[in-house]
Each structure stands twice: as C-alpha cells, then as structure tokens.
C-alpha cells in the first residue's frame, strides 16, 4: 500500500487513520521514522490532536457537572404550547 519511505501525503493519511484504529506495526514504524525527520508532518500531527481536543472539550462542556444549564421554564412552556398547537 505505502512505499518504503512514505511521503508527507501518505503520512498525513497514516496519522489520521492511527487516530481511529491501531495501525499495523510496520506501517506505524515507517510513520514514526518520517515524523522524526519532518517538521511539517510533526506539526500536522499536533494539529490533528488539537482538533480532537476541541471536539472533546465540547463534549465535556455539554455534560460537565458544575456547568449544567437547564432549559428555562418559560421556554419549556412555550415549546409545549407549540407542540399542542402543532398537534391540533
């Protein structure tokens, strides 16, 4: 699938895929070799990690125990009203 020394484009693909599954050992080693040598792909790897972090931080925000906003009562009443009218 990939050549002896993967190029940057191939490495970006491996970095991404490595975030979703365990890459085969050889592929992972080739990727690591490239990342040691390549400043831009290393940056790329950190940036994808940051995208993940951004996603997770939103998930945390959404379920955080000390920051759990509830649907205000007036909105609740308004929505029920809308549902009654919609059903009628």
């Amino acid at each position: 699938m990939f050549g002896l020394i993967p190029d940057c484009k191939e490495v970006t693909r491996m970095v991404s895929e490595g975030m979703d599954r365990d890459l085969p050992r050889v592929q992972r080693m080739k990727m690591r070799m490239h990342l040691w040598m390549c400043k831009y792909c290393s940056r790329f790897e950190k940036q994808l990690a940051l995208l993940r972090k951004a996603g997770q931080s939103l998930a945390t925000y959404r379920t955080g125990p000390d920051d759990s906003p509830v649907l205000p009562q007036d909105a609740r009443d308004r929505i029920k009203q809308a549902l009654r009218e919609g059903a009628a």
Binding site: K9, Y40, C41, K46, K53, A54
Partner: peptide
Amino acid sequence: GWSVRPAKWSVHPGHVY
C-alpha cells in the same frame, strides 16, 4: 510533499476550550 506547509499554531492545547 507539502506544497502548502502547515503553519505553526499558537494555540495551547490545554486551553482550547
């Protein structure tokens, strides 16, 4: 190879949120 190289991001991962 990269033709548009990834720029250096000045975001601190710990503070993203």
